[in-house]
Design a protein around this nucleic acid. Structure first.
Lengths: 207, 207
DNA sequence: TACCAATGGTATAATGGTTAACAAATTGAA
DNA sequence: TTCAATTTGTTAACCATTATACCATTGGTA
Protein backbone atom coordinates (compact mmCIF):
# COMPACT_ATOMS: atom_id res chain seq x y z
CA UNK A 1 0.00 0.00 0.00
CA UNK A 2 1.44 3.36 -0.98
CA UNK A 3 2.02 6.09 1.57
CA UNK A 4 -0.91 8.37 1.02
CA UNK A 5 -1.92 7.61 4.58
CA UNK A 6 -0.55 9.20 7.72
CA UNK A 7 2.70 7.69 8.93
CA UNK A 8 3.33 7.70 12.69
CA UNK A 9 6.35 9.75 13.68
CA UNK A 10 7.70 6.83 15.65
CA UNK A 11 7.98 4.92 12.38
CA UNK A 12 9.78 7.81 10.72
CA UNK A 13 12.18 7.78 13.62
CA UNK A 14 13.19 4.19 12.87
CA UNK A 15 13.77 4.63 9.16
CA UNK A 16 17.12 6.41 9.57
CA UNK A 17 18.29 3.47 11.64
CA UNK A 18 17.29 1.05 8.91
CA UNK A 19 19.04 3.22 6.37
CA UNK A 20 22.23 3.47 8.40
CA UNK A 21 22.36 -0.27 8.91
CA UNK A 22 21.66 -1.02 5.25
CA UNK A 23 24.39 1.38 4.13
CA UNK A 24 26.81 -0.37 6.40
CA UNK A 25 25.80 -3.72 4.91
CA UNK A 26 26.31 -2.30 1.44
CA UNK A 27 29.78 -1.12 2.41
CA UNK A 28 30.42 -4.73 3.39
CA UNK A 29 29.52 -5.69 -0.20
CA UNK A 30 26.34 -7.41 0.81
CA UNK A 31 23.58 -7.65 -1.82
CA UNK A 32 20.55 -9.13 -0.07
CA UNK A 33 19.32 -9.06 3.50
CA UNK A 34 16.22 -10.10 5.41
CA UNK A 35 13.99 -8.43 7.95
CA UNK A 36 15.35 -10.92 10.44
CA UNK A 37 18.98 -10.03 9.85
CA UNK A 38 18.24 -6.33 9.96
CA UNK A 39 16.29 -6.83 13.16
CA UNK A 40 19.16 -8.64 14.82
CA UNK A 41 21.69 -5.97 13.90
CA UNK A 42 19.46 -3.16 15.09
CA UNK A 43 17.95 -4.89 18.07
CA UNK A 44 14.23 -4.76 17.30
CA UNK A 45 11.73 -7.32 15.96
CA UNK A 46 11.64 -8.45 12.36
CA UNK A 47 7.88 -7.98 12.24
CA UNK A 48 8.31 -4.38 13.21
CA UNK A 49 10.63 -3.73 10.29
CA UNK A 50 8.31 -5.45 7.82
CA UNK A 51 5.32 -3.52 9.10
CA UNK A 52 7.14 -0.21 9.00
CA UNK A 53 8.32 -0.74 5.45
CA UNK A 54 4.92 -1.99 4.30
CA UNK A 55 3.52 1.45 5.07
CA UNK A 56 5.50 2.79 2.13
CA UNK A 57 5.30 -0.04 -0.38
CA UNK A 58 6.29 -3.62 -1.03
CA UNK A 59 10.05 -3.49 -1.18
CA UNK A 60 10.90 -7.10 -0.48
CA UNK A 61 10.50 -10.42 -2.21
CA UNK A 62 8.89 -13.29 -0.37
CA UNK A 63 11.21 -16.19 0.16
CA UNK A 64 14.22 -14.02 -0.65
CA UNK A 65 14.36 -10.83 1.38
CA UNK A 66 15.30 -7.28 0.48
CA UNK A 67 17.72 -6.03 -2.15
CA UNK A 68 19.98 -3.82 -0.06
CA UNK A 69 20.76 -1.25 -2.71
CA UNK A 70 17.13 -0.99 -3.80
CA UNK A 71 15.89 -0.54 -0.24
CA UNK A 72 18.54 2.07 0.46
CA UNK A 73 17.36 4.10 -2.50
CA UNK A 74 13.75 3.79 -1.39
CA UNK A 75 14.56 4.94 2.13
CA UNK A 76 16.72 7.79 0.88
CA UNK A 77 13.81 8.93 -1.23
CA UNK A 78 11.26 8.61 1.60
CA UNK A 79 13.48 10.50 4.04
CA UNK A 80 14.36 13.04 1.34
CA UNK A 81 18.07 12.44 1.71
CA UNK A 82 18.40 11.54 -1.96
CA UNK A 83 19.86 15.06 -2.15
CA UNK A 84 22.32 17.17 -0.14
CA UNK A 85 20.94 19.51 2.53
CA UNK A 86 22.99 22.52 3.50
CA UNK A 87 23.30 23.12 7.23
CA UNK A 88 24.20 26.22 9.21
CA UNK A 89 26.10 25.71 12.46
CA UNK A 90 25.75 28.42 15.10
CA UNK A 91 28.41 28.47 17.79
CA UNK A 92 32.10 27.90 17.13
CA UNK A 93 33.04 26.44 20.49
CA UNK A 94 34.11 22.85 20.98
CA UNK A 95 30.82 21.38 19.82
CA UNK A 96 30.35 23.70 16.86
CA UNK A 97 33.93 23.11 15.78
CA UNK A 98 33.49 19.36 16.00
CA UNK A 99 30.37 19.62 13.87
CA UNK A 100 32.10 21.84 11.32
CA UNK A 101 34.88 19.28 10.97
CA UNK A 102 32.72 16.16 11.20
CA UNK A 103 33.23 13.92 8.18
CA UNK A 104 30.14 11.84 8.87
CA UNK A 105 27.60 14.08 7.15
CA UNK A 106 28.88 13.37 3.67
CA UNK A 107 27.06 10.53 1.91
CA UNK A 108 24.26 10.68 4.40
CA UNK A 109 22.53 13.67 2.89
CA UNK A 110 24.04 16.68 4.62
CA UNK A 111 26.80 19.26 4.34
CA UNK A 112 27.76 22.00 6.72
CA UNK A 113 27.63 25.20 4.68
CA UNK A 114 28.23 28.01 7.19
CA UNK A 115 29.55 28.55 10.69
CA UNK A 116 28.59 31.50 12.89
CA UNK A 117 29.63 32.88 16.27
CA UNK A 118 29.10 36.13 18.14
CA UNK A 119 32.57 36.26 19.72
CA UNK A 120 34.71 38.88 17.96
CA UNK A 121 37.77 36.81 18.80
CA UNK A 122 36.41 33.94 16.74
CA UNK A 123 34.85 35.83 13.85
CA UNK A 124 37.12 35.66 10.82
CA UNK A 125 39.15 32.73 12.07
CA UNK A 126 39.11 29.47 10.16
CA UNK A 127 37.67 26.24 11.57
CA UNK A 128 37.73 23.24 9.31
CA UNK A 129 36.92 24.64 5.89
CA UNK A 130 34.88 27.52 7.25
CA UNK A 131 35.56 31.10 8.13
CA UNK A 132 33.57 31.94 11.24
CA UNK A 133 30.96 34.55 10.40
CA UNK A 134 29.35 37.19 12.59
CA UNK A 135 26.08 35.99 14.18
CA UNK A 136 24.76 39.48 13.59
CA UNK A 137 24.17 38.52 9.98
CA UNK A 138 22.88 35.03 10.68
CA UNK A 139 19.29 35.60 9.66
CA UNK A 140 20.09 37.31 6.40
CA UNK A 141 22.79 34.88 5.36
CA UNK A 142 20.61 31.89 6.03
CA UNK A 143 17.78 33.38 4.05
CA UNK A 144 19.96 34.32 1.09
CA UNK A 145 21.47 30.85 0.96
CA UNK A 146 18.03 29.27 1.33
CA UNK A 147 19.23 27.07 4.17
CA UNK A 148 16.53 24.99 5.84
CA UNK A 149 18.47 23.23 8.59
CA UNK A 150 20.34 24.72 11.53
CA UNK A 151 22.37 23.33 14.40
CA UNK A 152 22.58 25.25 17.65
CA UNK A 153 25.83 24.87 19.56
CA UNK A 154 25.79 27.97 21.76
CA UNK A 155 25.35 28.35 25.54
CA UNK A 156 21.84 27.74 26.88
CA UNK A 157 21.37 31.43 27.55
CA UNK A 158 21.72 32.17 23.83
CA UNK A 159 19.82 29.23 22.40
CA UNK A 160 16.35 30.76 22.19
CA UNK A 161 17.71 33.90 20.61
CA UNK A 162 19.60 31.92 18.00
CA UNK A 163 16.54 29.77 17.33
CA UNK A 164 14.48 32.90 16.71
CA UNK A 165 17.04 34.19 14.24
CA UNK A 166 17.19 30.86 12.44
CA UNK A 167 13.42 30.74 12.13
CA UNK A 168 13.38 34.31 10.88
CA UNK A 169 15.88 33.29 8.23
CA UNK A 170 13.60 30.51 7.02
CA UNK A 171 15.12 27.49 8.77
CA UNK A 172 12.58 24.70 9.21
CA UNK A 173 14.56 22.08 11.12
CA UNK A 174 16.78 22.65 14.14
CA UNK A 175 19.13 20.31 15.93
CA UNK A 176 19.74 21.84 19.33
CA UNK A 177 22.86 20.90 21.31
CA UNK A 178 22.15 23.43 24.05
CA UNK A 179 20.64 21.69 27.10
CA UNK A 180 17.42 23.68 27.09
CA UNK A 181 14.02 23.49 25.41
CA UNK A 182 13.38 26.08 22.75
CA UNK A 183 10.08 27.45 21.45
CA UNK A 184 9.49 27.64 17.74
CA UNK A 185 6.42 27.88 15.48
CA UNK A 186 4.68 24.55 14.85
CA UNK A 187 5.98 24.45 11.29
CA UNK A 188 9.57 24.21 12.54
CA UNK A 189 10.90 20.85 13.68
CA UNK A 190 13.31 20.54 16.59
CA UNK A 191 15.44 17.69 17.78
CA UNK A 192 17.66 17.72 20.85
CA UNK A 193 21.04 16.27 21.66
CA UNK A 194 22.02 16.44 25.31
CA UNK A 195 24.43 13.75 26.46
CA UNK A 196 23.43 14.23 30.08
CA UNK A 197 19.84 13.29 29.31
CA UNK A 198 21.06 10.01 27.86
CA UNK A 199 23.39 9.40 30.78
CA UNK A 200 20.73 10.07 33.39
CA UNK A 201 18.43 7.70 31.60
CA UNK A 202 20.99 4.96 32.15
CA UNK A 203 22.04 5.70 35.73
CA UNK A 204 18.52 4.84 36.87
CA UNK A 205 19.33 1.24 36.08
CA UNK A 206 22.79 1.17 37.68
CA UNK A 207 23.34 0.13 41.30
CA UNK B 1 2.13 4.98 45.59
CA UNK B 2 5.81 4.13 46.07
CA UNK B 3 7.85 2.65 43.26
CA UNK B 4 7.93 -1.02 44.09
CA UNK B 5 6.20 -1.61 40.79
CA UNK B 6 7.82 -1.70 37.38
CA UNK B 7 8.41 1.68 35.80
CA UNK B 8 8.22 1.85 31.99
CA UNK B 9 11.48 2.90 30.39
CA UNK B 10 9.70 5.60 28.46
CA UNK B 11 8.82 7.23 31.76
CA UNK B 12 12.44 7.03 32.93
CA UNK B 13 13.37 8.72 29.68
CA UNK B 14 11.24 11.74 30.52
CA UNK B 15 12.50 12.22 34.07
CA UNK B 16 15.83 13.77 33.01
CA UNK B 17 13.88 16.31 30.99
CA UNK B 18 11.80 17.21 34.03
CA UNK B 19 14.95 17.49 36.10
CA UNK B 20 16.71 19.68 33.58
CA UNK B 21 13.76 22.04 33.33
CA UNK B 22 13.32 22.22 37.10
CA UNK B 23 17.00 22.98 37.61
CA UNK B 24 16.71 25.81 35.11
CA UNK B 25 13.70 27.16 37.00
CA UNK B 26 15.67 26.98 40.21
CA UNK B 27 18.50 28.92 38.64
CA UNK B 28 15.87 31.56 37.85
CA UNK B 29 15.15 31.69 41.59
CA UNK B 30 11.74 30.14 41.23
CA UNK B 31 10.33 28.32 44.28
CA UNK B 32 7.09 26.68 43.14
CA UNK B 33 5.85 25.36 39.81
CA UNK B 34 2.90 23.38 38.50
CA UNK B 35 2.51 20.43 36.19
CA UNK B 36 0.97 22.82 33.72
CA UNK B 37 3.91 25.21 33.66
CA UNK B 38 6.37 22.36 33.40
CA UNK B 39 4.34 20.89 30.58
CA UNK B 40 4.35 24.11 28.62
CA UNK B 41 8.10 24.56 28.96
CA UNK B 42 8.82 21.00 27.94
CA UNK B 43 6.10 20.63 25.35
CA UNK B 44 4.12 17.66 26.67
CA UNK B 45 0.82 17.34 28.53
CA UNK B 46 0.41 18.21 32.20
CA UNK B 47 -1.44 14.97 32.84
CA UNK B 48 1.55 13.07 31.58
CA UNK B 49 3.86 14.74 34.06
CA UNK B 50 1.51 14.16 36.97
CA UNK B 51 1.06 10.54 36.01
CA UNK B 52 4.78 9.96 35.60
CA UNK B 53 5.61 11.49 38.96
CA UNK B 54 2.78 9.64 40.70
CA UNK B 55 4.57 6.39 39.92
CA UNK B 56 7.24 7.38 42.43
CA UNK B 57 5.28 9.15 45.12
CA UNK B 58 3.15 12.16 45.94
CA UNK B 59 5.50 15.06 45.46
CA UNK B 60 3.02 17.89 44.91
CA UNK B 61 0.43 19.74 46.93
CA UNK B 62 -3.09 20.09 45.63
CA UNK B 63 -4.04 23.66 44.94
CA UNK B 64 -0.39 24.74 45.08
CA UNK B 65 1.85 22.71 42.82
CA UNK B 66 5.36 21.36 43.29
CA UNK B 67 8.20 22.74 45.40
CA UNK B 68 10.95 23.00 42.82
CA UNK B 69 13.87 22.27 45.10
CA UNK B 70 12.09 19.34 46.73
CA UNK B 71 11.14 17.81 43.38
CA UNK B 72 14.68 18.26 42.08
CA UNK B 73 16.05 16.31 45.02
CA UNK B 74 13.49 13.57 44.53
CA UNK B 75 14.32 13.23 40.84
CA UNK B 76 18.05 13.29 41.51
CA UNK B 77 17.57 10.48 43.96
CA UNK B 78 15.35 8.44 41.61
CA UNK B 79 17.78 8.85 38.72
CA UNK B 80 20.74 8.22 41.03
CA UNK B 81 22.40 11.47 40.12
CA UNK B 82 22.46 12.56 43.74
CA UNK B 83 26.13 11.61 43.42
CA UNK B 84 28.95 12.09 40.90
CA UNK B 85 29.55 9.37 38.31
CA UNK B 86 33.00 9.07 36.78
CA UNK B 87 33.06 8.66 33.01
CA UNK B 88 35.73 7.33 30.67
CA UNK B 89 35.94 8.89 27.22
CA UNK B 90 37.45 6.76 24.46
CA UNK B 91 38.63 8.62 21.38
CA UNK B 92 40.47 11.92 21.50
CA UNK B 93 39.33 13.31 18.16
CA UNK B 94 37.04 16.29 17.79
CA UNK B 95 34.12 14.67 19.57
CA UNK B 96 36.16 13.12 22.37
CA UNK B 97 37.97 16.39 22.91
CA UNK B 98 34.73 18.33 23.06
CA UNK B 99 33.43 15.85 25.63
CA UNK B 100 36.61 16.07 27.68
CA UNK B 101 36.29 19.85 27.81
CA UNK B 102 32.51 20.04 28.17
CA UNK B 103 31.52 22.02 31.24
CA UNK B 104 27.93 20.79 31.20
CA UNK B 105 28.48 17.56 33.13
CA UNK B 106 29.23 19.26 36.41
CA UNK B 107 26.20 19.70 38.65
CA UNK B 108 24.25 17.21 36.63
CA UNK B 109 25.83 14.15 38.14
CA UNK B 110 28.83 13.37 35.97
CA UNK B 111 32.55 13.99 35.61
CA UNK B 112 34.90 12.90 32.90
CA UNK B 113 37.66 11.02 34.67
CA UNK B 114 39.83 9.59 31.89
CA UNK B 115 40.50 10.03 28.19
CA UNK B 116 41.90 7.30 25.94
CA UNK B 117 43.08 7.01 22.35
CA UNK B 118 45.06 4.47 20.35
CA UNK B 119 46.94 7.01 18.23
CA UNK B 120 50.59 7.26 19.43
CA UNK B 121 50.62 10.87 18.27
CA UNK B 122 47.88 11.71 20.73
CA UNK B 123 48.90 9.53 23.68
CA UNK B 124 50.58 11.67 26.31
CA UNK B 125 49.26 14.97 25.00
CA UNK B 126 46.98 17.07 27.13
CA UNK B 127 43.35 17.79 26.21
CA UNK B 128 41.37 19.85 28.68
CA UNK B 129 42.56 18.61 32.06
CA UNK B 130 43.39 15.15 30.80
CA UNK B 131 46.50 13.44 29.55
CA UNK B 132 45.48 11.11 26.74
CA UNK B 133 46.13 7.53 27.80
CA UNK B 134 46.90 4.49 25.69
CA UNK B 135 43.78 2.50 24.73
CA UNK B 136 45.86 -0.60 25.26
CA UNK B 137 45.31 -0.22 28.97
CA UNK B 138 41.67 0.84 28.75
CA UNK B 139 40.17 -2.26 30.29
CA UNK B 140 42.52 -2.41 33.23
CA UNK B 141 42.36 1.28 34.02
CA UNK B 142 38.58 1.32 33.94
CA UNK B 143 38.41 -1.67 36.22
CA UNK B 144 40.93 -0.29 38.71
CA UNK B 145 39.09 3.03 38.88
CA UNK B 146 35.74 1.23 39.19
CA UNK B 147 34.26 3.30 36.36
CA UNK B 148 30.76 2.28 35.32
CA UNK B 149 30.07 4.67 32.42
CA UNK B 150 31.90 5.01 29.12
CA UNK B 151 31.54 7.24 26.08
CA UNK B 152 32.66 5.98 22.69
CA UNK B 153 33.98 8.63 20.33
CA UNK B 154 36.05 6.53 17.95
CA UNK B 155 35.48 5.64 14.27
CA UNK B 156 32.71 3.13 13.55
CA UNK B 157 35.24 0.48 12.68
CA UNK B 158 36.63 0.60 16.23
CA UNK B 159 33.39 1.01 18.16
CA UNK B 160 32.60 -2.64 18.81
CA UNK B 161 36.14 -3.36 19.88
CA UNK B 162 36.11 -0.44 22.31
CA UNK B 163 32.71 -1.50 23.63
CA UNK B 164 34.07 -4.98 24.32
CA UNK B 165 36.99 -3.54 26.24
CA UNK B 166 34.75 -1.28 28.26
CA UNK B 167 32.47 -4.16 29.17
CA UNK B 168 35.47 -6.25 30.12
CA UNK B 169 36.55 -3.44 32.42
CA UNK B 170 33.20 -3.46 34.18
CA UNK B 171 31.43 -0.58 32.46
CA UNK B 172 27.66 -0.93 32.66
CA UNK B 173 26.45 2.09 30.66
CA UNK B 174 27.73 3.24 27.28
CA UNK B 175 26.99 6.38 25.34
CA UNK B 176 28.02 5.67 21.76
CA UNK B 177 28.81 8.55 19.40
CA UNK B 178 29.94 6.23 16.61
CA UNK B 179 27.18 5.84 14.00
CA UNK B 180 26.86 2.09 14.36
CA UNK B 181 24.98 -0.35 16.58
CA UNK B 182 27.07 -2.21 19.10
CA UNK B 183 26.41 -5.54 20.79
CA UNK B 184 26.80 -5.84 24.53
CA UNK B 185 25.55 -8.23 27.22
CA UNK B 186 21.98 -7.53 28.38
CA UNK B 187 23.24 -6.15 31.68
CA UNK B 188 24.97 -3.27 29.89
CA UNK B 189 22.91 -0.26 28.82
CA UNK B 190 23.63 1.59 25.59
CA UNK B 191 22.44 4.93 24.30
CA UNK B 192 23.29 6.40 20.92
CA UNK B 193 24.01 9.90 19.72
CA UNK B 194 24.15 10.27 15.95
CA UNK B 195 23.26 13.72 14.66
CA UNK B 196 22.47 12.37 11.20
CA UNK B 197 19.72 10.16 12.61
CA UNK B 198 18.08 13.22 14.11
CA UNK B 199 18.50 15.20 10.92
CA UNK B 200 17.05 12.49 8.71
CA UNK B 201 14.10 12.24 11.02
CA UNK B 202 13.34 15.89 10.29
CA UNK B 203 13.99 16.01 6.55
CA UNK B 204 11.06 13.66 6.04
CA UNK B 205 8.80 16.55 7.01
CA UNK B 206 10.53 19.19 4.88
CA UNK B 207 9.45 19.98 1.33
C1' DT C 1 8.51 -31.83 -11.32
C1' DA C 2 7.35 -31.82 -6.48
C1' DC C 3 8.47 -30.61 -2.15
C1' DC C 4 10.60 -27.93 1.61
C1' DA C 5 12.45 -24.12 4.07
C1' DA C 6 12.68 -19.30 4.22
C1' DT C 7 10.57 -14.97 3.81
C1' DG C 8 7.44 -10.81 3.15
C1' DG C 9 3.00 -8.80 3.73
C1' DT C 10 -1.22 -8.42 6.28
C1' DA C 11 -5.03 -9.12 9.44
C1' DT C 12 -5.94 -9.69 14.16
C1' DA C 13 -5.05 -9.81 18.99
C1' DA C 14 -2.74 -8.16 22.88
C1' DT C 15 -0.30 -4.89 25.12
C1' DG C 16 1.10 -0.45 26.48
C1' DG C 17 0.70 4.57 26.75
C1' DT C 18 -1.81 8.95 26.70
C1' DT C 19 -5.51 11.89 27.50
C1' DA C 20 -9.65 13.51 29.77
C1' DA C 21 -12.29 14.06 33.66
C1' DC C 22 -13.09 14.63 38.45
C1' DA C 23 -12.98 14.42 43.60
C1' DA C 24 -10.22 16.14 47.24
C1' DA C 25 -7.21 19.46 49.00
C1' DT C 26 -5.37 24.02 49.27
C1' DT C 27 -4.99 28.96 48.96
C1' DG C 28 -6.41 33.58 49.01
C1' DA C 29 -9.87 37.01 48.82
C1' DA C 30 -14.26 38.83 50.07
C1' DT D 1 -16.04 32.20 57.69
C1' DT D 2 -17.31 31.26 53.10
C1' DC D 3 -16.52 30.92 48.36
C1' DA D 4 -14.10 30.79 44.04
C1' DA D 5 -10.05 29.51 41.76
C1' DT D 6 -6.18 26.26 41.47
C1' DT D 7 -3.98 22.15 41.29
C1' DT D 8 -2.84 17.35 42.43
C1' DG D 9 -3.41 12.28 42.18
C1' DT D 10 -6.13 8.81 40.16
C1' DT D 11 -9.53 6.40 37.43
C1' DA D 12 -11.27 5.08 33.25
C1' DA D 13 -11.72 5.69 28.47
C1' DC D 14 -9.35 6.21 24.50
C1' DC D 15 -5.74 5.73 21.26
C1' DA D 16 -1.35 3.93 19.50
C1' DT D 17 2.00 0.49 19.12
C1' DT D 18 3.72 -4.04 19.16
C1' DA D 19 3.36 -8.92 18.85
C1' DT D 20 1.22 -12.99 16.87
C1' DA D 21 -0.45 -15.90 13.44
C1' DC D 22 -1.06 -17.02 8.99
C1' DC D 23 -1.03 -17.17 3.93
C1' DA D 24 1.27 -16.49 -0.41
C1' DT D 25 5.42 -16.50 -2.79
C1' DT D 26 10.01 -17.63 -3.82
C1' DG D 27 14.18 -20.34 -4.60
C1' DG D 28 16.60 -24.32 -3.89
C1' DT D 29 16.94 -29.33 -3.91
C1' DA D 30 16.08 -34.00 -4.69
Amino acid sequence: MPSNQFIPDIVIGRLPQYLRTLQRMESENRIITSSQELAERIGISAAQIRKDLSLFGEFGKQGTGYDIHFLIEKLRSILKVDRIWDIVVVGAGDIGSALARYQGFTNRGFRVAMLFDKDPAKIGTKIGNFVVQDSRYLSDAVQRANIKIGMIAVPSSEAQNVADQLVRGGVRAILNYAPISINVPPVVHVQYIDPVIHLQRMTYYLD
